[in-house]
Design a protein around this nucleic acid. Structure first.
Lengths: 157, 157
DNA sequence: ATCAATGCAAATAATTTGCAAAAAG
DNA sequence: CTTTTTGCAAATTATTTGCATTGAT
């Protein structure tokens, strides 16, 4: 079997830190491990809570100071789902070009990738004189259950 | 010449208010006229300032209470450009399906429409069991100037 | 008349920041 | 040793809300 040459998200973030001469503290490690051991979207507050389960010494300030590093690295992306606070998506390390479908009522979120859409985006952007750096497609929809039953069985609350 | 049967954005919003038995106050009129006489994206604070130029009695609270009505009507959409506060886009009355390209450095914003992308979105959503309600595509890019010169001549500041 | 809408000022809530102490390289 | 990072608590900032009053229908 060939050696796995693909760096993990955690390793890639460590390299990012090192490239910027930033230090690997215990608190940062707890945060990083939390972020890259889930594929769920999370808020700053959730990240604080989960990180504290690994290391009680993680403070809210450190979480808020680390989040911009994570987004700057490109491995995590800030998401606006129209809620009161921002969510963060850790799946950009694995799937740098994925899109989101958000169910209006049950708030289920499905991620998908589409080369066809990506190609059209490139083509159109180029025609308009731009070179794409990142892209974000969010679709708000209703799911089958909702359409058929008038209410979505996954509805929370 | 045939009569113009297409309702203006302002008229459509008035109908929205009426449908919900909401009242047409002087302050709301100032806000509505402000919103639908520009195609620029604006913040709540800018909307307050501009509306006050039409009617000094418009208060911040009323602006914040009116914005959700505007977005609920579908004629205006809340936009997250990664800034400290939200922007609002009044062009959804005219172009209900448009997308955005944001230049990373000069912050120029270009709007465009694409039936091809819209069709793909529908198709993919349907396959995944969803029916699209709204869609939002934001592309972050660099513009020609930036690519060629290393800095964008439209750069603000 | 009735009930929605207003301004104001106080409240809320997410995020940021100054600072002295602690820790990484 | 030097410089970054930390936690804490205070500060900031966008947005929301309670309330008495005003105004639209």
């Amino acid at each position: 079997m060939l050696a796995n040459t693909k760096a993990t998200a955690k390793q890639r973030f460590m390299e990012f830190l090192s490239r910027k001469s930033l230090r690997v503290t215990a608190q940062r490690q707890a945060i990083i491990e939390t972020v890259f051991s889930t594929d769920k979207h999370f808020t700053a507050e959730q990240l604080l809570e989960w990180s504290r389960e690994r290391d009680r010494s993680v403070s809210r300030a450190t979480v808020y100071r680390t989040l911009p590093l994570l987004t700057e690295s490109g491995l995590v992306r800030e998401m606006d789902f129209g809620k009161d606070c921002k969510f963060y998506d850790p799946n950009y390390a694995e799937h740098p070009n994925h899109n989101h479908i958000i169910c209006q009522d049950c708030e289920k979120i499905v991620e998908f990738e589409s080369d066809k859409i990506a190609r059209l985006e490139d083509e159109i952007s180029h025609k308009l004189g731009f070179a794409i750096k990142t892209q974000r497609l969010q679709i708000t929809a209703t799911c089958e259950e909702l359409k058929k039953l008038g209410a979505c069985k996954h509805k929370s609350g």
